[in-house]
Simulated assay, not measured.
Amino acid sequence: MHRFPLLTSPWANGHLQQAWEKAYRHHRRKVQNAQPVVDTHAPPTFSHLHLKLKRLKLEEEKLSTIDRDNHLLLERVASVMRTKEHTDSRNNSIQRRSS
């Protein structure tokens, strides 16, 4: 069996006792002066997570396609309105009888 060495001199025992008491007082002082360290701030927000550039680009392309189609439709309607007297509404297809 291993035995712990006995401190033979009272000075060594007293010196160790004082060192332990000093360390304990220091520890207790640190515990008394401890400040809370819980972070209660909001997490950082990143702009690339809120600003969706791909979605904006797709929406812009969609709107430009709609504008182009509206412009073409407006031109067709205007052309029909200008030439409404000259339109031919007759059906020139040949009607075939089924016998």
Rank of each mutant, 00 (worst) to 15 (best):
H48R: 13
H86R: 13
K22Q: 03
N70R: 01
R96N: 06
M1S: 09
A42I: 02
H2C: 10
D88R: 15
V38A: 09
N33C: 02
A42L: 05
P36I: 00
K62V: 00
E61C: 00
I66E: 07
A12Q: 07
P10R: 08
R96V: 10
R28N: 08
P5G: 01
M1R: 13
L63I: 08
L58A: 02
T45W: 08
S93C: 06
H50V: 13
A12I: 05
H41E: 08
I66P: 00
Q32G: 09
R68V: 00
S89N: 15
S93A: 12
V37H: 03
H2Q: 13
L6Q: 06
R3V: 05
A19S: 03
T8K: 15
R3S: 14
H48S: 11
R97A: 02
T45A: 14
M1D: 11
A78N: 04
Q17S: 15
R82L: 03
E85G: 03
S93P: 00
I66M: 01
F4V: 13
N92K: 15
P43G: 05
L7Y: 05
T65H: 09
M81Q: 13
H86A: 13
E61M: 03
P43N: 01
A34T: 06
L16Q: 04
T65V: 09
V37C: 06
T40M: 12
T40F: 00
L74P: 01
S79P: 00
R82D: 13
V31W: 02
S9P: 01
T45Y: 14
Q95D: 04
H71G: 11
V38N: 06
L72D: 02
L63P: 00
P44V: 08
W11R: 04
V38E: 05
S64R: 09
K22S: 13
A12N: 12
L16H: 07
L53I: 05
A19D: 12
Q35V: 13
T65M: 09
S89L: 12
L6R: 05
L74A: 11
H26I: 01
P36S: 10
H50I: 04
I94T: 05
M1Y: 04
S89F: 14
R82P: 01
K22A: 08
R55L: 12
R68F: 09
A42K: 09
E85Q: 11
E21N: 09
P44C: 00
L49V: 10
K84N: 09
